[in-house]
């Protein structure tokens, strides 16, 4: 597809952060894009990969260092922290509480809605290898793990490209 033939109804998001404050807008924009008839793809890479780990998986990694990194980054969407003033979980707990009161859905529920609406969720193969996150430890229904070239190819065809 040439530059002129970019699809105005295609959105690609590079989710590089696992922070709760980044996860929320990623999920809101993807679900809304799908509801607006867009072809939406989210490529989860680096810290962004941790939220794809199932919430019941406590630790990922293949050696002490990668296991320690997983412990510090708390895999799973429900354990996602705020990037600022998380204060040992107090910040994210308060944010979720306020969101609930205002009927804003938590990111893990928006994620399920996104999947129902056909949003493509692509895990980054390189990050999986780097951090030792196995496909069996991740949420079901994800796309095949891909690399940077596949993500870039998709972005070259999308009119809306975001790095969150």
């Amino acid at each position: 597809m040439t530059e002129e033939a970019k699809d105005p109804n295609s959105m690609t998001i590079i989710a590089f952060s696992g922070d709760l404050d980044k996860l929320w807008p990623t999920m809101i924009l993807s679900s809304t894009g799908a509801a607006s008839g867009m072809d939406v793809t989210v490529f989860f890479t680096f810290w962004g990969l941790f939220p794809l780990v199932r919430d019941d998986v406590r630790i990922t990694g293949y050696d002490p260092m990668t296991k320690m990194l997983a412990g510090m980054n708390a895999p799973g969407m429900k354990k996602a922290k705020l990037s600022k003033l998380n204060m040992g979980g107090m910040g994210s707990w308060m944010m979720r509480k306020v969101a609930g009161k205002n009927k804003l859905m938590p990111p893990e529920e928006l994620f399920d809605i996104c999947q129902d609406m056909g949003v493509k969720m692509w895990p980054c193969q390189m990050t999986m290898d780097l951090l030792g996150v196995k496909a069996s430890q991740m949420r079901p229904g994800l796309g095949e793990p891909v690399g940077a070239a596949t993500a870039l190819q998709k972005m070259s065809q999308s009119q809306i490209n975001l790095f969150i």
Binding site: I28, S31, N102, K103, L104, M105, I113
Partner: peptide, 14 residues
């Protein structure tokens, strides 16, 4: 009613 963004749009699309 009572739902916050993005739910009104998601429910409308559904």
């Amino acid at each position: 009613k009572g739902q916050s963004c993005p739910m009104p749009v998601l429910l409308t699309s559904k």
